[in-house]
Design a protein around this nucleic acid. Structure first.
Lengths: 111, 111
DNA sequence: CTGCAAGTTTGATGGCTGTCAAACTATGAT
DNA sequence: ATCATAGTTTGACAGCCATCAAACTTGCAG
């Protein structure tokens, strides 16, 4: 069964909606963690300081802004970044934000 | 007399504040109009659909986010984009947003 | 079938922010 | 001085949105 609602085409999404999605620090954290992850990440696999219901809300906003892709594996909802599709529509935007976000908090000391 | 408050260094401004500034469509319109203008623009010279007091508020937010520079000429407050300083801190970010905003409404047909 | 694990939905709430009108300040012109 | 122009400040208000708890759904394991 497909329990995941529609994934809109990033080309049809207004910049306004994209920025509204990315202005929230929790959502930006999700995007950054996805960008740094090697594999797709399930909802429970993120390091977030909000309740599960709030997290669900944030994932929905990101999905409807065309920023992430979601699919089920068992009871786990997997997430991946739609970075390549997004790059076609808004070149450099996602990369610049992820870079700005990442540089602020280095995950691991170099070396 | 200097009636203009401090212009913070863009390097000291969190990405969060920058995105909060740019998520508002009126403020993004100001930035885009500045990016497309050949000369500095006075507050009254923008095409905005809000009252003067609201416009003042938006200019203040942009200035405090390190995105614009302001100075007086007579009773006119002039505005210019701090794009070069900004590029040093968040490379590609401002350009990507201005590009995305501009491409949505082509000012002039090509050719 | 029972129980558990992972997420979702719903409803309510609190804080933030964009908005305006009105009163005000500062500068330049007559 | 007087007036007009350009913009600011203050105070109030409305709408939005992130947040949570509680109840619910779905799928898997035994």
């Amino acid at each position: 069964m497909n329990r995941i609602p529609a994934h809109p085409d990033p080309a049809e999404i207004a910049l306004q909606q994209v920025l509204e999605a990315l202005v929230d620090p929790v959502r930006r954290s999700i995007v950054t963690q996805l960008a740094q992850a090697a594999e797709d990440v399930k909802c429970g696999g993120f390091d977030l300081d909000v309740s599960a219901s709030t997290a669900t809300h944030h994932f929905k906003v990101l999905r409807e802004a065309g920023l992430i892709r979601q699919y089920y594996v068992g009871t786990s909802r997997m997430n991946s970044l739609r970075d390549e599709e997004f790059e076609q529509v808004h070149p450099g935007l996602l990369g610049a934000i992820v870079a700005a976000e990442s540089s602020r908090r280095p995950r691991k000391p170099v070396g």
